[in-house]
Amino acid sequence: MVKKAAGKRADGEEAIAVDKRVRVYVDTDDEVRGVVVEDFGDLAGHAVDVGDVHISDAARRWAVLLDAGTLVFVDSHQIAPE
């Protein structure tokens, strides 16, 4: 059995996880850096409607506190380990 290093995936790449530093909006002009503060996992991806009233769009998987002090919510394709 091969033990993997903490914070690493089986392929050796850094894992995205709570308390890890990340880049958000990777390889765009809007790229910023921050720390993951929440992983919504299976709760992500569901819009909320009550009757005919639209409450919110589908949730994003990751909550990231940016270095600038703002909080953003992003999906996995918008985030990468720092």
Rank of each mutant, 00 (worst) to 15 (best):
V48F: 11
D57P: 05
V72C: 13
D39Y: 05
D29F: 10
V26W: 07
D30C: 12
A44Y: 04
L43G: 13
V48S: 05
D49P: 03
R23A: 14
G34H: 02
V48L: 09
V22C: 04
D19M: 07
W62N: 04
V22L: 02
M1G: 06
L66A: 04
H77A: 09
R21D: 10
D49Q: 11
F73G: 04
G45M: 10
E38Q: 14
R33N: 06
I79A: 00
V37P: 04
G51N: 12
E31D: 09
V2C: 01
A5R: 00
L71E: 07
R60V: 06
V37K: 12
V24H: 02
A63N: 10
E13D: 04
V37L: 10
V35T: 15
A5E: 13
G34S: 09
R23I: 12
V72M: 15
A58I: 09
S76N: 14
D39G: 05
G51F: 08
I79L: 01
A63V: 13
D75M: 04
D52E: 15
A68Q: 08
A59M: 10
A5M: 00
L43E: 07
G45W: 10
V53T: 13
G45A: 10
V26F: 08
I55H: 09
V53N: 11
V64G: 03
A47P: 08
A17D: 10
P81Q: 00
V50K: 13
V32F: 08
G41P: 10
D52K: 13
K4E: 03
F73I: 02
D57M: 06
D39K: 07
V36H: 02
Q78F: 03
G45T: 13
D42E: 13
R61N: 03
V64R: 00
I79S: 00
T70C: 14
R9I: 00
V18D: 09
D42L: 12
R61I: 11
P81R: 01
V74R: 02
E14D: 15
A6W: 02
D67V: 05
V64M: 01
F73Y: 12
V48Y: 05
A6V: 03
V74Y: 02
A17F: 15
V26Q: 10
L43K: 12
W62S: 02
P81V: 01
G69M: 03
A44S: 14
F40D: 07
V53E: 11
G51H: 07
G34F: 08
V32E: 13
G7H: 01
A59V: 07
P81G: 00
T28R: 10
D29M: 07
D39W: 14
I16D: 01
A10P: 03
G45Q: 06
A63T: 12
G45P: 15
V37D: 13
L66D: 02
G12R: 01
V26R: 05
T70F: 12
E38A: 15
A44M: 14
G69L: 06
S76V: 05
E14H: 09
Y25S: 14
G7D: 00
